[in-house]
Design a protein around this nucleic acid. Structure first.
Lengths: 257, 257
DNA sequence: CTATTATTAGAGTATATACTCTAGGTAGTC
DNA sequence: GACTACCTAGAGTATATACTCTAATAATAG
């Protein structure tokens, strides 16, 4: 499908109704979603109450509850955005072989998404326990992601970038990739000594790409080994452990397709 | 209570004072820790209040707060137990070469520990944000674990089980192992369609070993490849996706050291 | 037995949280 | 202007949560 007009994802705006073409004042409903996401990301969902969100927007709680039945509904809608974003990025074009730039794009995109909705994985288990819809949807989302990762591996093999692997191994590898990706943020947040999440940057997050590429090293073909290793090198963490100030100039988008 | 891990570790009893040699009636303080752990594991820390804990033990809140200043202190002490348990299991003997049985033991033990204290990783970020001691200790704990994993890799290479790897790669691989291990539980809980965490079993959890061994496949030496693959096979998930009732007879402890 | 200390019960409190309810404003249409 | 549909304010509520305080009861030491 979509031979991606890349980076041109405008997930916002198609909120529900209103095909917002020209900048019109943002609707309250939309503002609630945006503020909620910001607050969730910054303080964690658990520390953000509906009253906080209303206060942050300088609207009344009543107003907030006019637009959303409850907190779960807000979270659910934010998840739908997240889902849409990732699904968009992980739409693997079947019409042509995959390239290294594609791979870079997938990795960058997935970590971008992870960053934008970073509150989500933090409290995932609680959120799923509190909302059956979300649990069901998330489960399917996970399966789609795993399938996409697996498909990427397959196409990487077809393109001669990695050695082909039996289905079973490919599945297990894909799952490992998923585990590394979804846990990388938590690792960064918990491995840092400093108190808050404030100090975490997108650049650091993308060092997760280094970890993901580490998984692929042994499977690289001789033809591409050096290229991929060079790519990986770009994401190497600067100060592996005591990391604070990330070296500037790092983490620039690499393949822009 | 709490199916604590096997293998002659008696972490309990050395709680603080009292070198409990013979079974004496359990002290209230000890009971609070046990019940808290059970409740946390079952319902998630977020859903368990101090009043719940007291009620569960049929003691008064006042009594609970006589023994612990606050909820954080309870959690912190439970963490110290967890830490002690894992440190105990990951103490790599330097006096002799490592064997495959050792590896099995390490993997089994780590997943046992993960299971016994499974509430911990679920709400990790929140817990660390609420308690600086815990944040600091956990960080050091992580580093010790990473070092242990790395050391295991080193010794596996020395023993000719895997090919030796440069330091840098070994570090990155160790981190990936850690990410897979600590995220496996969350994956299982969230990938299941059914509502609660109730349906999760230790056997399923140990299928994480399958994932960890998947990481090592490409590095295996010809001499040991088959053995390790056979070991891995024992942990293969039965019904990869729709998993519910796990086939009995699976997940028996394999190497008992 | 007495004095002291350790333990416990249980009522109570300050604060927070998700959410409701009523009344009123605004915008657009006829 | 009047009708209607949408939107908003803000006070308020039921419940929960972490934690405190007092007084009483066991346990122990001298």
């Amino acid at each position: 499908m979509a031979d991606r007009a890349i980076h041109a994802y405008e997930g916002r705006s198609a909120g529900a109704h209103s095909t917002t073409r020209i900048a019109e004042p943002m609707k309250t409903r939309e503002k609630i979603l945006l503020s909620s996401l910001d607050l969730f990301n910054e303080r964690g969902e658990r520390n953000v109450t509906t009253n906080h969100i209303a206060a942050h927007l300088a609207i009344s709680p009543g107003n907030l509850y006019y637009h959303f039945r409850n907190k779960s509904d807000i979270i659910y809608e934010i998840f739908l955005e997240y889902e849409k974003l990732v699904d968009f990025y992980l739409d693997i074009p079947e019409s042509r072989p995959i390239t290294l730039d594609d791979l870079t794009f997938y990795l960058e995109s997935v970590f971008d998404g992870l960053w934008s909705y970073r509150f989500f994985h933090r409290d995932l288990e609680y959120l799923l326990d509190s909302d059956q819809r979300l649990r069901q949807d998330y489960r399917e989302f996970t399966n789609r992601c795993l399938a996409a990762i697996s498909r990427i591996f397959e196409k990487l093999a077809e393109a001669g970038i990695i050695e082909p692997q039996p289905d079973e191994l490919r599945s297990a590898m894909s799952l490992n990739v998923w585990l590394v990706i979804t846990n990388w943020m938590a690792f960064l947040k918990t491995a840092h000594a400093s108190e808050a999440s404030a100090s975490l940057t997108l650049t650091e997050l993308k060092q997760g790409i280094y970890q993901v590429l580490t998984l692929e090293i042994p499977y690289l073909t001789a033809d591409y080994r050096e290229q991929v290793m060079a790519l990986r090198e770009k994401y190497r963490p600067r100060l592996p452990d005591s990391a604070d100030a990330p070296v500037s100039g790092q983490g620039e988008p690499i393949g822009n397709h």
